[in-house]
């Protein structure tokens, strides 16, 4: 909401002056201390979305624009059990394997590095997980998460507007998603993936994300309307994920950081739930549905 306001006020000076001016300048910045970065995900439905990405931060003006992944780490995810007030991670650790070690990975996944997969790991609802990483230099990174109960997408619908013929000669289409928020406190991360009918490799493959909680809608039906333009005939895939509160707080701060910039930019600190690195280990209770807007 506030972000929306900000966007509007961005426009103001532009409207005011038709356009503001800009020029390229040179800026010298002090070097940052290097920090380790981890993005780890586990869900109960899609194996390709169970992965651990490990990297290192670099100086801002370093011209390296690659992912900067770290190879050669040993990465394990262990399923846990909740017994009373305790959580015990006594299961067999699943070893996650560097995707770069798969034959032909370089040409299959151009630019991927530092991503660890498992061919056997699949998560379970209402289950805790532990992540343990040991880097080649001996640095240890760890974290825990929990896959909450899945909140199913109730239904998807769409409207095709025949009267609004857009420039390409297609009719506009608007999808709407419905789900019922359970009575307990829930946090969501909703990903939308347009058209391509295949598995996602990493949550970053999606076309849009929303991170929200049920502060205003607890226990009621929630309707999510997409005013974005789609064309008649488009396919839209929705992944409604139920996530934990700590993970929600991380992804909220991440959303702020990812949309930061301009005159009103403020330094954003990510609220990590990982020890030894910046980032999050997130358990997703994933519900998936697809709609073709014929």
């Amino acid at each position: 909401m506030n972000k929306f306001l900000k966007n509007i006020f961005y426009l103001l000076p532009i409207i005011f002056l038709v356009s503001s001016c800009e020029k390229e300048i040179s800026v010298s910045l002090s070097d940052a201390k290097q920090q380790f970065i981890v993005e780890a995900s586990i869900n109960q439905r899609f194996q390709s979305l169970n992965y651990v990405f490990i990297s290192k931060s670099i100086d801002y003006f370093n011209p390296d624009l690659s992912m900067g992944g770290i190879k050669g780490a040993s990465v394990f995810i262990t399923e846990g059990k909740i017994i009373g007030a305790d959580t015990l991670y006594t299961g067999t650790p699943f070893q996650m394997i560097d995707i770069g070690t798969f034959p032909g990975a370089d040409s299959l996944f151009k630019g991927f590095s530092g991503i660890y997969f498992s061919t056997t790991l699949i998560g379970k609802e209402n289950t805790p997980y532990q992540l343990k990483i040991t880097l080649a230099d001996g640095t240890k990174i760890s974290g825990t998460t929990f896959i909450p109960k899945v909140v199913p997408i109730d239904s998807l619908s769409y409207v095709v507007k025949n009267e609004d013929v857009n420039k390409d000669g297609f009719n506009d289409a608007y999808p709407t998603l419905y789900f019922n928020d359970p009575s307990e406190q829930n946090n969501y991360r909703l990903a939308r993936y347009n058209n391509v009918d295949s598995l996602m490799l990493g949550w970053g493959s999606a076309d849009s994300y929303r991170t929200f909680d049920d502060q205003m809608i607890n226990g009621t039906q929630r309707v999510i309307f997409y005013p974005n333009q789609f064309k008649q005939g488009d396919t839209v895939n929705f992944y409604l994920n139920s996530i934990g509160r700590k993970e929600y707080i991380f992804w909220q701060s991440f959303g702020t950081a990812a949309n930061n910039g301009g005159p009103f930019a403020t330094p954003v600190q990510l609220k990590s739930n990982i020890t030894g690195a910046i980032g999050s280990f997130t358990g997703y209770g994933c519900s998936y549905k697809r709609i073709i807007m014929k």
Partner: peptide, 12 residues
């Protein structure tokens, strides 16, 4: 101003 950066929310 930022002093460093990193890649995140990876996908293909």
């Amino acid at each position: 101003l930022p002093t460093g950066r990193f890649a995140y929310r990876i996908g293909y």
